[in-house]
Computed example of a mutant assay.
Amino acid sequence: MGITKRASAAVAAAALIGVAVCATPAYAGTDIGWTKVNLGFQPPPGFSGAGEFKSNGDLVRVCDGDDDGFGVSAWLVDSESNALARVVHVGGKGKCTTRTRNLREGTAVKLLLCLTKGSRGTPCKTSGLGAA
C-alpha cells in the first residue's frame, strides 16, 4: 500500500510539473529579410540602400550600398505606416549601422526604407510584414 501512495504522489507531481512547463508559451517573432531601395535610374543588380529587421532583440540593420550622394534611413512602422520606432540612418558607400529598438512582443512591423539627401527622402520602399 505504501508503494501505491508513493507512485500516485509521483504521478501527481509529474503532472503538476508538466502543467507548469506548458503554461509559459514562448513567442517567436518574424524577421524581415533584406529589403533594397534603388534610385530609379539604377540597374537591378546594385542597390543604393538596404535594411533588415531581426525579431530577436528587435534589431534594425541599415546599409548604404552606393557612392551616390544619398544616405539611407529606416523606420519600423505598423501596417498603416505609423512610426513605431526612431529612425536608423547611415551614409557612405559600404557602411552599415545596427540599432536595437524595444518593441512589445508580437507587434506587427514593416520596415520603411528611404534614400535621403538633406531633408529629401525619396525614393522609399516598404518591406513585407514581420513581428517583434
Rank of each mutant, 00 (worst) to 15 (best):
I32V: 14
S48N: 15
V88I: 12
G33Y: 01
A85L: 07
T35Q: 12
D64W: 07
G18C: 10
V60Y: 02
V77T: 04
G18H: 04
P44T: 15
R101Q: 15
C96E: 05
G91A: 11
A85S: 15
V37Y: 02
G33N: 12
A83G: 04
A20E: 04
R120N: 12
W34Q: 13
V60Q: 05
C63S: 12
L84M: 10
S79M: 08
T98M: 06
T116F: 04
A50M: 13
A83P: 06
L129P: 00
A7Q: 12
P45I: 06
L129A: 14
H89W: 08
C22Q: 09
Y27G: 05
R6S: 11
K110H: 15
L76E: 00
F70P: 03
S127Y: 02
L84A: 07
A12I: 12
D31L: 07
T97S: 03
T98Y: 03
K54L: 13
D31R: 05
G91E: 13
V90H: 04
G91N: 05
G57W: 09
E80L: 10
N56E: 12
L103N: 11
C22N: 13
L112Q: 14
L111V: 03
R99C: 04
F70I: 03
L16A: 14
G128P: 07
G65A: 10
A23D: 01
T122C: 05
G51C: 11
C96P: 05
N82S: 03
L39G: 08
G40C: 06
A15F: 07
G94D: 04
L103S: 14
K36V: 13
A20P: 01
S8F: 03
F70C: 00
T4P: 00
L115T: 11
K93C: 05
R6L: 12
L111C: 01
P45D: 14
H89N: 09
D68R: 05
G65F: 07
V90Y: 04
T98D: 03
A132Y: 09
G118M: 10
K54W: 05
L112S: 14
A28W: 04
C96I: 04
L76W: 01
T24E: 08
L39P: 03
K93G: 11
G18D: 12
N82L: 00
G2R: 12
L129E: 15
N38W: 07
D66C: 07
E80S: 15
G128R: 10
G71W: 02
M1H: 08
G40R: 04
M1V: 09
G49H: 03
I3Q: 11
D68Y: 07
